[in-house]
């Protein structure tokens, strides 16, 4: 009983971690499977086929590349626009400022089905051909909201005296922005971009409405799920997870090294 009381936090933590990671572990585990049936849900025998032949199934790699491409383009455009909108919202008083503030939140609050279908209606009305461009436009719309929210919070949390100190130390408006404001807001912008990319990569509903004949990775998986998901999908998903994990680990390691080297001084 005493043992339980002392270790209860550790036990709960482990339970939560297991709960969070079991699905990922299962996906990774099954990427080494050679399924007996079309459906890769039961362990049959070990095989590296999916890994050595990642693009072996038609459509897997092309849809993966499509999603990555859309993610990158939409994220870059949305991040640049969103960052500029945040600066305008925080730094300038203009007519319609509070309305803009409100409107920016709307894509986040709107159900995806509603947003996807109304965009579709819009594009059809305008006789705009559905495809990569319409998906990118749709993605930019919702990524912008996240960028604005993150960057705005960062800007508002910025001590105004830092910019004043810069101005006091011979930095004009441009230099103040370049050497003080921007570097201080940059982590927020990068964080928003990462979040935006993963939202875009992951999006199914809005993309499905506006994709036309374009097949993104989520749309491919959706289609494949009816016929049996190829093992390559497991392998690609595992790859993405490992890459993301590596990024986090490297970032941790770099900041740890920095701290260490400072203490050594």
């Amino acid at each position: 009983m005493r043992w339980l009381r002392r270790n209860i936090i550790a036990i709960i933590a482990i339970a939560v971690l297991v709960y969070l990671f079991i699905p990922i572990a299962v996906v990774a585990f099954l990427s080494f499977n050679n399924p007996a049936s079309k459906f890769n849900i039961r362990w049959n025998e070990f095989s590296l086929d999916a890994w050595t032949n990642l693009c072996g199934v038609p459509g897997v790699c092309s849809s993966f590349a499509t999603s990555i491409g859309i993610g990158i383009i939409a994220t870059i455009i949305a991040t640049v626009l969103g960052a500029m909108i945040s600066f305008a919202l925080v730094r300038y008083r203009f007519r319609g400022r509070s309305t803009t503030n409100l409107l920016i939140f709307l894509p986040m609050a709107t159900p995806e089905v509603v947003m996807g279908s109304s965009l579709l209606a819009l594009f059809l009305n305008m006789r705009f051909p559905l495809g990569q461009v319409t998906v990118i436009i749709a993605h930019i719309m919702f990524i912008i909201s996240f960028v604005v929210v993150t960057v705005k919070a960062r800007l508002q949390g910025l001590d105004p005296r830092l910019e004043e100190a810069a101005r006091d130390l011979y930095a004009g408006p441009r230099a103040t922005f370049r050497y003080v404001t921007f570097p201080l807001v940059l982590p927020g912008i990068l964080g928003a971009a990462l979040l935006g990319f993963s939202l875009s990569f992951d999006d199914f509903i809005i993309s499905y409405f506006n994709a036309g004949t374009l097949v993104t990775f989520p749309i491919y998986i959706w289609g494949a799920a009816q016929r049996g998901i190829p093992v390559q999908v497991n392998a690609l998903a595992t790859l993405v997870f490992v890459l993301a994990l590596l990024v986090v680990l490297v970032a941790q390691f770099v900041s740890y090294r920095k701290r260490k080297s400072v203490q050594a001084h």
């Binding site: 001590d159 004043e164 100190a165 006091d168 130390l169 011979y170 930095a171 050497y179």
Partner: peptide, 29 residues
């Protein structure tokens, strides 16, 4: 404007640039 005045300030709360090291803080001006 402040950046053109021959005046410098030591702020009540220091307002050191958190992203720059001590050397770069001092070198800023």
């Amino acid at each position: 404007p402040p950046h053109k005045r021959p005046v410098n300030t030591v702020f009540q709360s220091y307002a050191l640039f958190p992203h720059l090291d001590i050397f770069e803080n001092v070198a800023f001006g």
